[in-house]
Amino acid sequence: MQDAITNALAIKVACDKVNVHYGDTHAIKDVSIDIQDKTVTAFIGPSGCGKSTFLRCINRMNDTIDICKVTGRIELEGDDIYDAGIDPVQLRARVGMVFQKPNPFPKSIYDNVAYGPRIHGIAAGKAELDEIVESALRKAALWNEVKDRLQSPGTGLSGGQQQRLCIARAIATAPEVLLMDEPCSALDPIATAQVEDLIHELRENYSVVIVTHSMQQAARVSQKTAFFHLGFMPEYDDTEKIFSNPSDKRTQDYITGRFG
């Protein structure tokens, strides 16, 4: 039943034979994956296998690293994002990202969330900006905790609140895809549960891609899972299938704790 629903969803990001080189290191080798809309896709795999590197290809954050070279084809709704006609700045407004460590700007909570809408000129006036900020904070399940202190610094929040603030900041620009790079690795179990609940809800509107080290987390939050190993992606399937009956030997070894 689950399979029938997810398979019917449209493909949001199509990646074909993507290769990434860091100087002489070949970090990603021929990875092809179709990421669905309104789905949580988890990237799992041992440390250094290329999950985060691949994630950063999807919003071209790898461009900020001089020695990094990406080849292959990545399409966002049919547009080649590495095409010369695509401005990475505009791409990143459509593909939001949440980082491993909460990184709120040294500004007020309000200014943190309003940062993206302001630079992209999304809001027409103060009232509309207020609305965007409130709705983003509500979606990030943070509104009730911070509504009385929107002008206090975002860096003064607890770790879990900071991470939800970063999620609110990312969804305030109304992206189509949300990339999350181990968003819970710096959080305690309670904050992790809150962020996971949030990811569940985000699926209704976005295509979410999450890199995680925790297989339990991947099983809890995702519908699709891709397993990365030494720069290759040996397996990509429904999460249920990956964790119950993986078809690749390496996947099986990893999820049963043989390595990683």
């Binding site: 919003n59 954050m61 900020t64 700045v89 505009q90 791409l91 990143r92 407004a93 459509r94 939001g96 990202m97 980082f99 460590k101 990184n103 709120p104 700007f105 040294p106 500004k107 940062y115 993206g116 630079i119 992209h120 970063c166 900041r169 990312a170 620009t173």
Partner: peptide, 27 residues
Amino acid sequence: VPRSMRDGSLALGATQSETVLKVLFPA
């Protein structure tokens, strides 16, 4: 200024000069 600030701003679709002016410079 930590690299994470720079990345956070760039990932929101800010240009390099917006990042410098609004995030790096105040920090």
